[in-house]
Write a protein that binds this DNA or RNA. Sequence first.
DNA 1: TAGATTGTTAATCGATTAACAATC
DNA 2: TAGATTGTTAATCGATTAACAATC
Lengths: 223, 223
Amino acid sequence: MRNRAKTLSGKTVERLSVYRRILRVPGAVAGDFVYSHELAEMASGTAAQVRRDLMALGVAGHPKRGYCVTHLVDAIGELLDDPEGTRVILVGVGDLGRAVLRFVKGYRPELKIVAAFDKDPAKIGRMIHGYRCRDIDDLESFLQTAAVRVAIVAVPAAEAQGVSERLVAAGLRGIVNFAPAPILVPDHVRVERVDIATALEKVACLVRLSAAAEAGSALGDVA
Amino acid sequence: MRNRAKTLSGKTVERLSVYRRILRVPGAVAGDFVYSHELAEMASGTAAQVRRDLMALGVAGHPKRGYCVTHLVDAIGELLDDPEGTRVILVGVGDLGRAVLRFVKGYRPELKIVAAFDKDPAKIGRMIHGYRCRDIDDLESFLQTAAVRVAIVAVPAAEAQGVSERLVAAGLRGIVNFAPAPILVPDHVRVERVDIATALEKVACLVRLSAAAEAGSALGDVA
DNA sequence: TAGATTGTTAATCGATTAACAATC
DNA sequence: TAGATTGTTAATCGATTAACAATC
């Protein structure tokens, strides 16, 4: 059981998260079972990859019938979800932070945002999307008593590094970084970047390059 | 020049976007030049990778001096930015959509959001963050006359696929998908997922697994 | 020069895909 | 059975890292 952690790459964890979300959609699957190739199609992957991921997860399928959906969803939940609920804090209650609050409430209610911090005096003390905004100066004292290992950082780029250092110093082990700037943390801290700026630039760039390539190869097409 | 497109992987494009953002921060680099190992440290990469990326970009450095920062920033801009400005539309003006609007205005003003659409009658016609919200029913007619190739999808999960199909049918070539659901599109359409739910689950899961591994190794094999 | 860095090729690593015996 | 699918190993692919001659 424990050695599962060794064989589970970050990419597999990501895909398992996606599989679960797909399988939870009512009516996504016709019967109670799903074939690897069906799940693959819905997740834009390959059947072999799905089978490998599920093997790493430790779930067995049935030749001819496929994988039991409820069993699968439960197994992924056992891996991804903390049985005691995942407690996280949010730092930065700007538009992005508020969107994250709303998003979590709507899509991931099992994720408990136990506190939200900002440095703007106009926000401190106010209720935002059902959460009371706290003073960022109280971050350390709050973390001394609260059992939290993961933080969401949604502050401006210039403040991301400083905030992260405070979080690391306070003992946090995971950061989801929405700020459009990379942060440097010790090896034992997990950082996941959600990089909106890069995603936008990447798509725009690749679309432009492929359009240019087409124009080039078709030569006379648009000239 | 044109064959650059072939050697540029998506990952390289992503990193180049990050490099530029780092280099644009005032005072990030001491002088006018930067060494590959310096840039690597700031981007949490390796010097060899930086040199490889810049080689793919087609920028030459100088032994002993390193790479000229302004030259580098310009070269990355030539690759990433459309000289005529990148025109995109936004579909879905909920919290997430609004956060994206605000984000783009603050961090990527060169990205032109030419229209924002929603299906909520309460939003249609209103100004949101400086953009007038249009009726989603007018999507096709708008796209017939507007030169847009990229869309940002920030609608609820259940609507992402339907909206994407309309965008593809209207001729769009790139989609940045913020909805917590995978979308299926033809091969010629570029999709970049920004998956907040998965990022949160991944970090929480990996932190939990590594904490369990530590506890396990500290106490002996099985806890 | 001596020392440090670039540009680039070769080696390594990890992740994906293909293949196929086992299974129902 | 015949046919389709799983579980798993081997082959492939791509991306990262190491190494080092060329350069200043």
